[in-house]
Amino acid sequence: MPVKLKLTYLSIIVLFFTSRVQAQQSSFINDVNYPYLEKLVATAKKNYPEVKARQSQVNAAKGLYNSTVFSWLEGVTASYIYSPQNSINLSQPTIFKGYQIAISLNIGQMFSRPGAIRQAKETYKAAEYQQAAYLLTLEAQVKRYYFAYLEAQAELRLRANAVIDAETAVKQLKYAFQKGETTFQIYNEQLNSLYNQNSFKVQAELATFTAKTNLEELLGTKLEDVK
Rank of each mutant, 00 (worst) to 15 (best):
G115H: 03
V76T: 00
A44P: 01
T213I: 05
R113G: 06
N192T: 10
G115D: 02
I186Y: 04
I88Y: 09
S56R: 08
K227D: 05
P114H: 13
Q130H: 08
A152F: 08
A169G: 05
N59D: 14
N47W: 05
A133C: 02
V170A: 00
N30E: 11
K179W: 00
K4L: 12
S91F: 13
L10V: 01
K46D: 07
A132V: 14
N192A: 14
A126K: 13
A23T: 14
Q22N: 06
S193Y: 05
P93S: 04
I186G: 00
L223Y: 14
S83F: 05
Y36M: 05
A120T: 02
V3I: 03
N161I: 07
D165C: 04
Y187V: 06
G115T: 03
K227E: 08
N66Y: 02
Q109N: 15
K6W: 07
S87Q: 12
P2N: 14
D31I: 01
L158I: 07
L150N: 13
R118C: 01
A160L: 08
K201Q: 15
P84F: 04
L40I: 07
T18L: 05
D225V: 03
G75H: 05
N66P: 00
V41E: 12
Q25P: 06
G108D: 03
F111S: 04
I81Q: 13
